[in-house]
Structures are given as C-alpha cells and as structure tokens.
C-alpha cells in the first residue's frame, strides 16, 4: 500500500487542508470502491458522481481552481448525465443488475493492478517539488492568467476548440436529420 505522508506548509491553516484532503480522498476512494461493488447501474452512476466530486475537491485544495470547476461542470454535471441517459435509452430495464462473470472479474483485477502499479511507480519516480515550490502563493495559477494565455499565446487552440465543438454539433444535427428521413421512409412504406 502506498503510504502518503502529507506535509503541509502554513501552520495556521495546515490542519484545515489536511482534514479536507483526507475528507475528499476518503470520499473518492470509498465511492470508487462502492462503484465497483454495486450491482445496480444507476447507483454506480451516483457513486461515480461522488468520486468525481471528491477529485474536484482535491483540485481545489491544490489551488487548481479552473480544473476543479471544469471537473464539476463538465464531468459531474455533463458527462455523468450523458452516461445515465445512455443507460436509460439503451437497456431494456435501466435498473438492471450487473453481475460480472469470473473471467471478466479476473481481467478487471489484472488491469487494475497493472494500472495501480504503474501509477505508484510514476508518482514515486516523478520527484515532486517541495511544498514551498509547488504552493501557488502568488497568483500565477489564477484563472485570469490562464485566460490571458488562452487568448494570446494559445489563441489558435482556443479557437480550434470552438470549431471542434461546431463540428460535433453539426455531426449531431446530421445524425438527427438522417433518422428523421429514415422514419419518414419507414412511415410511407408502412402505409403502402
């Protein structure tokens, strides 16, 4: 088991950070565990929401405010809704219970172990900077500096993101139009 030594700077607020860190870490960890163990697919989605929210809390603690906001807005608020909608649309019974077979469980266990080992090795080998160097005491990591860079040096990426969103929207529109046409063709065939 990877042991985390959490050393905090700023003694007056250090214990708040420590308590919040363990709170969010426990929220993420326990929810992820429950997500894997739960047999009910809708409850899995709720546990996934709690896991993602806990990760967002850790982003807040790290001072990555924009990343935390993105995590909450896009993943908790958006992608999760899409997942639940996908379940409700596709499965015959949205509240169906999922019971993995032995082979699937073994494969999942192997993959999870490999990923955990890889992450642990990467974290230990990364040589993380000391807390004082990593702490965003100045506002270099503030959202407005991200905005300033996004709209000046990385302007192309910013506008390309807009164009990609446009393309996705057009793709969705195309799919809908094709289905409307197919439905109309089916209706006329049914009549004749």
């Amino acid at each position: 088991m990877l042991l985390l030594h959490v050393q905090t700077v700023g003694s007056s607020e250090g214990w708040v950070t420590l308590v919040l860190f363990y709170l969010f870490a426990a929220l993420s960890g326990v929810s992820a565990w429950a997500l894997v163990l739960s047999p009910n697919i809708i409850r899995m989605a709720v546990y996934l929401m709690l896991t993602l929210a806990g990760v967002a809390g850790i982003y807040f603690l790290l001072g990555a405010e924009l990343l935390a906001a993105v995590q909450l807005i896009v993943y908790v608020g958006g992608v999760l809704i899409l997942i639940i909608f996908g379940v409700m649309l596709t499965s015959r019974n949205p509240y169906l219970n999922v019971a993995p077979r032995g082979g699937e469980m073994a494969l999942g266990l192997v993959l999870a172990t490999v990923l955990a080992v890889l992450l642990a090795v990467a974290v230990l080998a990364a040589g993380l900077p000391e807390a004082a160097a990593a702490a965003p005491d100045d506002d270099r990591y503030a959202v407005r500096w991200i905005g300033a860079l996004l709209l000046s040096r990385h302007l192309i990426a910013f506008e390309v993101a807009a164009v990609i969103l446009l393309i996705v929207m057009i793709g969705a529109g195309y799919l809908v139009r094709r289905r409307i046409k197919a439905n109309q063709a089916g209706a006329t065939e049914g009549r004749s």
Partner: peptide, 24 residues
C-alpha cells in the same frame, strides 16, 4: 433526449472556456 443531452454538454464545454476569458 440523448441528442439534447449532447447539445447541453457542448454548450457546457463552451461555457467552461468563457470563465478564463471573463476573469481576464
């Protein structure tokens, strides 16, 4: 409803890009 949810997600991502702009 899935298409509507997808559209929502698109504008959701769009809004995310507006936060840094608004703050700068």
């Amino acid at each position: 409803f899935y298409i509507v949810a997808m559209t929502f997600l698109l504008f959701d991502v769009e809004i995310v890009f507006l936060y840094p702009w608004a703050s700068v």
